[in-house]
Design a protein around this nucleic acid. Structure first.
Length: 233
DNA sequence: ATGACGATTTACT
DNA sequence: GTAAATCGTCATA
């Protein structure tokens, strides 16, 4: 009989006191690799109702329920950054394992946040398009404040768009390629499964160049949710 | 070296 | 409704 293997903590952990976890959370709330390794349409629908969480250095969190997503289907998808196996430094994260973040810069001023799906050989992903803010609204409001001051921003102005939610949660290029199943900075936590009857489909936004892929219904959102980026027709 | 182009948002007519 | 803002990225040369 071999004695149970014990892993010594790294030295820097000596200074960090062990804090007992609340007995109510038996397992991590974080979604696992298995969740993300499915096809992007399945993941895009399954992500609705889950919580995107940004963990800040000071221990504070800002978070919101995912209420709108889009699926990008990889090599065959004319709208996808990985169309025709396009692979450059910018989109390299698309070629990581499911659960990686793919954060890219666009229009000279905005970031957008995707979650990679399937496995490293299949460059598919889901774009997170909108959140319903649930935690740290004061931080989100501060991050979003501009010409309109923070105290005049409505909750529906905080994260109702792919670049807005990145600004609200301070998601920038620094977080590109982060593994969301491990990252201390960005995670997705489990939540309710939204029934298909409450998930309308619509064409994706901002891809008029994508020819026959422009009108495919690969955008998913929670019915009648006021935080969705653009109201459906 | 150069130029065209965005998986967007905001302000303004 | 239309248009400006604003610049990293990549294909072309």
């Amino acid at each position: 009989m071999r004695p149970p293997h014990r892993v010594e903590p790294p030295a820097h952990c000596d200074t960090i006191p062990r804090v007992p976890q609340p007995s109510t959370s038996k397992s991590s709330p974080r979604l696992t690799r298995r969740f993300y390794r499915r096809d992007p349409v399945t993941v895009a629908r399954a992500l609705l109702g889950k919580t995107l969480v940004r963990h800040f250095k000071n221990g504070r969190r800002a978070a919101g329920t995912i209420v709108e997503t889009e699926a990008y289907l990889g090599a065959p998808d004319r709208a996808a950054h990985a169309y025709n196996h396009h692979h450059t430094p910018r989109n390299h994260s698309m070629y990581l394992d499911g659960g990686a973040a793919y954060v890219y810069f666009t229009y000279g001023m905005h970031f957008c946040c995707n979650i990679v799906t399937q496995t490293a050989d299949v460059p598919t992903a889901c774009l997170i398009r909108a959140l319903q803010p649930t935690e740290g609204l004061d931080l989100m409001r501060r991050n979003r404040a501009g010409k309109i001051p923070a105290d005049r921003l409505r909750d529906t102005d905080l994260a109702s768009g792919p670049a807005k939610l990145c600004q609200a949660l301070n998601i920038t290029r620094d977080l590109d390629a982060q593994d969301l199943t491990q990252s201390p900075h960005l995670t997705v936590e489990r939540g309710p499964t939204i029934p298909p009857s409450q998930i309308p489909r619509a064409p994706r936004v901002g891809i008029a160049y994508a020819e026959q892929w422009t009108d495919k219904p690969l955008r998913f959102f929670i019915t009648a949710n006021p935080h969705v980026s653009v109201p459906h027709p």
